[in-house]
Design a protein around this nucleic acid. Structure first.
Lengths: 196, 196
DNA sequence: GCCTGAAGCTAATGCCGTTAGCCTTTAGCT
DNA sequence: AGCTAAAGGCTAACGGCATTAGCTTCAGGC
């Protein structure tokens, strides 16, 4: 049988697909090896450890998230960019919960960890989006953190099944985005928006 | 030595203290047994499994969070209640990251799982707090989810070390709370606040 | 004083990550 | 073409951890 040659990249890809199916917590070397048609120890010819594998998946996930986000924001600004970016992130998390969990669990392993630029690309997209709101420069970091918090929190709660009541989650998300948009526009309008 | 008799409750308490120290992911039966001065298998005389232990910790954590939140909101309303409640939750998560993680990982095991009323008590506190904003009834659920998302997201990112840039996290949190407050008050003022 | 059950222990099982060591294949060099 | 060496697979084995089985001990109720 013509075997596609196994590489660290292809294994990472398979691992990412696996965690999206079984959940990041249930990632195991045995399961992945089975998917690849090899025995567990053979995996170690390609990745150093399970932690290494998880980290590679995290880098892949963060890179993909960056792409998705850039594409969503591309060509839009202000409210449109916010709505598109937020929606894109939510979709990404719902379609790739395992990847997303991996990217959350990851910590940079050193100063030249490729995970760092991948994360920065995501943050840069959010920053670009926020720049459309003409916020006070001193507030941008706070707005950024608020934005990240709310989107991260919503996505996490949603995939964890945290929204039990039978009210439309889609509707809540639209409401949330509008809420953010209005607050950000108010902040721009007043020049300070929020005092503290 | 006069040993305090071991009970499921005391073991859960010790487990909760342990996860706050070592992290929920690093919870192990051996570590907990060592803390209690017994051998690992003896633990099974008191709890059914590690999953059972984790679930008990989650119930304890959710109950404690409910207490903290109720106490914080007690006697306040509107912006004050929001600020106090949000601050109380953040403090709880920072002081008890392991408990918090346990409560997030937990899923109800059945219809009469005590975890359910414990969760509901937390939600009820948030609902009570939101009622001070006189929102349109149809929007309360969305506001609630937004609130939970942003607080959960912020707390999670913070304990995970997700805020790298050296801008004050305290300040960001204050900003976030003010942002929410202004948005909620605007929503009440207009009677609808957010359109979608 | 005996019996029972609660609660400890040791020993053993099985799963999983990981390492060591062996074998086959294949790419590349002479 | 033929040799060499690395790449990449495999089996066997180790160690850690959750869990179970079965023994022992000790305190409290009859």
């Amino acid at each position: 049988m013509p075997k596609a040659r196994l590489t660290p990249a292809s294994i990472t890809e398979a691992g990412a697909a696996l965690v999206d199916e079984v959940g990041f917590d249930n990632l195991s070397m045995g399961l992945l090896a089975e998917r690849l048609g090899i025995k567990t120890p053979s995996l170690y010819k390609h990745v150093a450890s399970q932690a290494d594998l998880a980290h590679r998946i995290a880098i892949l996930a963060m890179t993909e998230a960056g792409d998705v986000l850039r594409d969503a924001i591309q060509g839009r600004s202000g409210s449109d960019a916010l709505a598109a970016g937020a929606q894109a992130m939510r979709t990404f998390v719902r379609e790739h919960p395992g990847r997303y969990a991996a990217s959350n669990a990851a910590r940079p392993t050193g100063p030249d960890d490729p995970f760092i630029p991948a994360s920065e690309r995501v943050l840069a997209s959010w920053a670009a989006m926020l720049s459309g709101y003409d916020l006070d420069p001193g507030q941008e970091i706070h707005a950024m953190r608020t934005l990240r918090s709310v989107l991260h929190g919503f996505a996490t709660l949603e995939v964890a099944g945290g929204f039990q009541i039978d009210a439309s989650v889609d509707e809540s998300f639209t409401w949330l985005v509008s809420f953010l948009d209005q607050g950000l526009r108010a902040g721009a309008a007043t020049g300070s928006g929020v005092t503290h």
